[in-house]
């Protein structure tokens, strides 16, 4: 129930007074309530639980995390290079 992958907002609409949207997960699309992410724009990624978007994914932070992972990997290869010298 708490597993979810980020999906991309492809459509924003209003239904019964609620901000709704279509979210695309690599091809499959689902209707989702966007009331809790009032400032979300088309093209941004959100985390959806049981039909409700809970947060907009912070792309800058996503990139930072990946950079940290890459740094770790680089440090390791440097270390291995030194060892093999």
């Amino acid at each position: 129930m708490c597993l979810a992958v980020p999906g991309k907002v492809v459509e924003i609409s209003e239904e019964n007074g609620l901000k709704m949207g279509k979210i695309d997960y690599g091809g499959t699309q689902n209707s989702t309530c966007l009331e809790f992410v009032p400032d979300v724009n088309i093209g941004e990624y959100v985390i959806v639980h049981a039909g409700f978007a809970l947060n907009v994914l912070d792309e800058k932070e996503a990139k930072k995390t990946l950079d940290i992972f890459d740094e770790l990997e680089q440090k390791k290869s440097e270390f291995l290079r030194k060892l093999s010298k």
Partner: peptide
């Protein structure tokens, strides 16, 4: 899938296990 596959990279996973 964007923001998913990057966090499943096997080479990075291996180096992370080594770090641990």
């Amino acid at each position: 899938m964007k923001f998913v596959d990057e966090y499943r990279d096997p080479a990075l996973a291996r180096s992370m296990i080594e770090q641990i």
